[in-house]
Amino acid sequence: MNKQEALFDYLVRLGDTSLIAGQRLSEWCGHGPILEEDIALTNISLDLIGQARQFLTYAGEVEGRGRDEDALAYHRDVWEFKNVKLIEQPNGDFAQTILKQYFLSTFNCLLYGALSHSKDETLAAIAAKSLKEVLYHKRHSAEWLKRLGDGTAESKQRMEFALEELWTYTGELFEMTEVDKVLVEEGIACDLNELYMRWLNEVEEIFEEATLDMPKDVFMASGSRKGLHTEHLGFILAEMQFLPRAYPDAKW
């Protein structure tokens, strides 16, 4: 695998994770538990889709086959998507959405912090810009995580259920492949093993404040780096891609 192929795959991974996370969150539009949260979740969705556009546009340029952000977002099938399975999971209740967002945002803060020093200037610029946005995302979900975990009996029970559902998908965030090895050597990508220890420390701290127990060793799902997904991604794509596939010349 050469540097160009690795960078394309890496950018698609970042772009797809932001895109599918943003698409999922947009499902909350009009369904938030309170108006302010409806607005907050859709604002976060908007940031994520904006970030996805930057990553996918750049991925298309790196690939050099004339694919733009829309071609990559709307004209690939499930097995070509490289987003982590965590964010394609259904929104569930508010607790599940918050926990998922907390895991992702905490990861994104560490990742973009590291990538803002990437030797690839465009990747560094997108990361530095995105970092400012995901810091707000993390603060939002962290505050809710504490409030719900250390809240009423029901909110705590819902948070514990969310943790049972989602913890198994967190390992994938830190999986390294040949792509990572090639890019770490070039100074373009970062070592995800290092990020994992920092991520785990942050999660432990916030769980203590939220009076939640850290999960014990459990099975960690895998496969998204190779394009293997849960059944949910197909349904997301069916909805997200319908219009540009059915009406390829449609203009806004």
Partner: peptide, 8 residues
């Protein structure tokens, strides 16, 4: 330069 990545 954009303000926010996704600013419409």
């Amino acid at each position: 330069t954009p303000t926010y990545s996704g600013c419409p």
